[in-house]
Amino acid sequence: MSGQGHRTPSAPRLAVWKFASCDGCQLSLLDCEDELLAVAQALDIAYFPEATRAPIRGNYDLSLVEGSITTPHDAERIQDVRRRSRALVTIGACATSGGVQALRNFANVCEYASIVYARPDYIHTLATSTPISDHVKVDFELRGCPIDKGQLIEVISAFLAGRKPATPSHSVCLQCKLKGNVCVMVAHGTPCLGPVTHAGCGALCPSYDRGCYGCFGPMETPNAPSLSARLSSLGMDERALQRVYRTFNAQAEAFREESERHDE
C-alpha cells in the first residue's frame, strides 16, 4: 500500500472509547508515530475523541475501550458500546481490572466525596470501580498501566489478519531473562513483583534497575503468598506488603486477595 491516506474501501471501522481513566492508554495509540499512518490506512478511525471529532454513529468492527466503570451512566454506556461493536478489546489496567481508582473498593466512597467535594450531593458515583468485563463480554484484554504501544499494534495487526495476538501471559521474569537483565531481586536485593506479574512491558523497570510494580496485573498462575514471604525477608513489613499489591491492579483477584492477607 503506498500513497497517503488511501484506505481500502472496506477498511474495518475502529472506535476508541473512554471511561474512567487518565487517557494514558489512548495516548499510547497517538504515540505510535511511526505506525499511526499505517493504522489510519488499514482502519477507518470512526470514533476517537482524542484525535477526531467524529460523532458516534452506526457500528464498529473494532472497539478499543479505555477506563473502568465508576458511574451509573457509564454502566449504561458500556452496554451501548458493546451493542455497536463487533469486537471489543479493553486496553489498560483501568479497563481490565478497575485501575488505581479501584482503591475506592477498599474504602467508603461517600466519606471520600464529602472530604473532596463542596457539594457531594452533586456526585453520582458508584461505590466501586470495576473492569469492563464485569459488565459486558470482552473479546480481548490488553494489560498495562499504561499499555505497551508495541503490544497495541500487535493486537490491531492480529485483529486485521484474523489471528491470535502474541501477548503471552507468563511472568515478567521470562522477558527479563530474554533481555539479558541481571535480576534486581537476586543480585541487588531489590523487591520485585516480576514473578507474579503478567508480561508485556518487556521488563521495563528491571531494565532500569528497579523492581517491577506490577502494573500489568497478575500473570497466568500467580503465587503471591510465596513471593510475599520473600519480599518480607527483604525487609517489607505487613503494611508495605499490603500496599505493594494495592496499586494499578488493586482489584485484580490475586493482588486483592494478597493485599487483604496483609490487612492489619
Partner: peptide
C-alpha cells in the same frame, strides 16, 4: 509447588 512462582527463571538460566 507451594513455594514455586512458576516464574521460569530456573529454565532461562
Amino acid at each position: 509447588a507451594a513455594r514455586c512462582l512458576a516464574c521460569t527463571n530456573c529454565t532461562m538460566v
